[in-house]
Design a protein around this nucleic acid. Sequence first.
DNA 1: ATAACATATGAGTAAAGACACATATGTGCG
DNA 2: CGCACATATGTGTCTTTACTCATATGTTAT
Lengths: 119, 119
Amino acid sequence: MDQVDINSVEQIARLFKILSDPNRLRIISVLGKNECSVSELINGTGLPQTLVSFHLKTLRDSGMVDTERKGPFIYYRLKSPVLIDLLGAFNQYTFNGQKNKDMATGMPCPCSPWFFKKS
Amino acid sequence: MDQVDINSVEQIARLFKILSDPNRLRIISVLGKNECSVSELINGTGLPQTLVSFHLKTLRDSGMVDTERKGPFIYYRLKSPVLIDLLGAFNQYTFNGQKNKDMATGMPCPCSPWFFKKS
DNA sequence: ATAACATATGAGTAAAGACACATATGTGCG
DNA sequence: CGCACATATGTGTCTTTACTCATATGTTAT
């Protein structure tokens, strides 16, 4: 039981660590709109293939995504769409909270195109 | 405007990075209950002084906490209590979501003592 | 079977992060 | 002042992480 207690902080920290990379957030954000293939992720994020694959491995290992092969394509999808809502909540926090007052006006939700497009 | 857009993902990622360390989460969790001095944080978390100070610097630099000197003590408090709610939401996600089904039963909120105590 | 495409993996590198230890700064009291 | 306490900072180290490049695996069509 102490085991469980100790683990829980570590667990949450591990979750946040996964979310703490901008490129991974871009990938997650695209996945939040639709399940999609790796190719679509590459196009959607503007990141090189190996990098997308690299981050997808992290997401797979964390159990955050499911995969399904369809012909030559492998489709990824978020196991829990709730995650997107949580990201939205944090987005609000970042721009409307006591942090970064200078960017406090009208930011769109994390699913908007600007959120994940690379440049 | 493109500037802003690109930054935002980085901003959110930076926020998550701050939350991605277990010891920092412990500190934040204690702060979520009450504003308190560094000594109280050391006691509350069971972490060595220099380590607490080290992490507090991160939290200060990120603008996540405010400080106030009271005699020899320096009191820290979260700028936005909302953060605690967000942590609670993520806690729910971690244990009730599609992840870690084996720990899915009745986890307390991140403000409970077990959440931040070291061992 | 070979070619073309989709995706994953492995090695190497450079940078960031967490930490411990030693030391400095700041505050109040005798 | 000098001492005890509270907190911060600097340095060195070890680990982790993001990334690139090269290469491997898997799939489909010809």
